[in-house]
Design a binder for these strands. Structure first.
Lengths: 235, 235
DNA sequence: CGTTTAGAATCGTAGGACAATCATGTTGGG
DNA sequence: CCCAACATGATTGTCCTACGATTCTAAACG
């Protein structure tokens, strides 16, 4: 306790540097748990319906209950888990109709993202950045089972959304994308071929060409195709 | 301050009142604070940029810090406040571009809501419910300055969204509507006429007629009109 | 076999504590 | 007089403990 001021001074003097970007902010503990659970969704260590007991999580990550609660609240705010009063949190289960609802919205939003991206494709290094993520995604055409494909597709969508310079849209899409990924993962496990490289190709080419209308239509068509794929899938 | 525990007990026992609102599940404390602050946005007791200090809020509502923090986190998740690490919460300030971004998205979402509503207008009591909220809104045509108008317009939008039976969309719209309301309030203070009853009329009639296409177009046109209004507004 | 009820789990919320960090005012040097 | 280093206070981040409230579980009972 008596070392307070000296320790502080030391830390101060050894850290005169200023964080460069806003993103450097060093994630908080709830942030870490949040991302840890989201990642758990990706690799299957958390499955829909699974219950998340606060006490377990506090022990698992060695944090306090308040911290766990904050993380759970954020997960609930994103619709990833559902909270029932006095009954705790559980990974949300998306039924068919909710998936359909999600896709109905995503059709519009991804269409909008594609249109905006096409509109600004020639600003700054947008063209190069987008082309990069686009080619990285298409490189998986030959090996569509790769785990890396998920990352590439993620990057493709993120880049698409970022070019449009609509931060609200970016936020919405990343949040909804988490749900989409779960849907796609489940479909993959069912042996469905969910990757539609021809769709990605149309979207990418239209965006690169700066063709607003074609980009939006291609994106919307892609989402609709996924929806009809899911409609045909087993329950 | 020696009355702390006794005062707490008194408050506890004198608070068996129930909200009796739509939510049967009895709102939690963070819920109450959340709604209290949102309401504060409506009546002007909270203005954009205003800082929300945890200690103040705990005292103001007599709840613990954890509770306040949960409320703040939820407000942040909805984009109503912004949190900066170690710097606390502040009511979010929407700049021109963010408003434009919001409206760009809302154009699509409200259009979708109108289309879905038109699609299902003849199911159950949808027609009656919608007509009711529609006429209630149009009744304010003669006195557009009324405070009640805000409520009527809110109900109109809520009804519109609920008929579509897309819960995701409903959630999104209510969340984004909070921001819209702040924009409209600000515009009203600037003496702008933001109510466009002709727009409401077109939307309502198209929905009631079950004309999907016309309903969607009318809704989108309405949002675009609001956007161009704002573009013409002073900074 | 269905119902009741006691106990265990778990959550909701309060309250206190302390380090980390930020904001601000102060001081000493140029 | 201005600027940079420093000390101080304010506020947040996180931990801990505690206890009533609610739900779940399962044994006891009719």
């Amino acid at each position: 306790m008596t070392t307070k001021s000296t320790a502080k001074a030391a830390a101060r003097s050894s850290h005169p540097e200023r964080p460069a970007a806003e993103a450097v902010h060093a994630a908080s503990s709830p942030d870490l748990i949040f991302h840890e659970i989201v990642r758990g969704l990706y690799n299957g260590s958390y499955v829909p319906g699974q219950r998340l007991v606060e006490a377990d999580l506090t022990q698992k990550w060695g944090v306090s209950r308040g911290t766990v609660r904050e993380a759970l609240n954020r997960l609930a705010a994103e619709g990833i888990v559902v909270l029932s009063r006095h009954r705790g949190a559980a990974i949300r289960i998306l039924d068919r109709e909710e998936i359909r609802n999600l896709l109905t919205i995503l059709e519009l939003l991804i269409g909008l993202a594609a249109r905006l991206a096409a509109q600004r494709i020639n600003e700054g290094d947008n063209h190069a950045r987008f082309l990069d993520s686009f080619e990285a995604l298409m490189a998986f055409r030959s090996r569509p089972d790769s785990f890396e494909l998920v990352r590439a597709r993620n990057r493709f969508y993120r880049t698409l959304a970022s070019i449009g310079r609509n931060t609200e849209l970016q936020g919405l899409l990343t949040r909804m994308h988490v749900h989409l990924l779960r849907v796609q993962l489940r479909s993959q496990q069912d042996g469905m071929l969910t990757e539609r490289f021809d769709d990605y190709s149309s979207i990418g080419q239209a965006v690169l060409a700066g063709d607003l209308r074609r980009a939006e239509l291609a994106a919307r068509r892609h989402v609709r195709a996924m929806q009809s794929l899911l409609d045909r899938a087993p329950a």
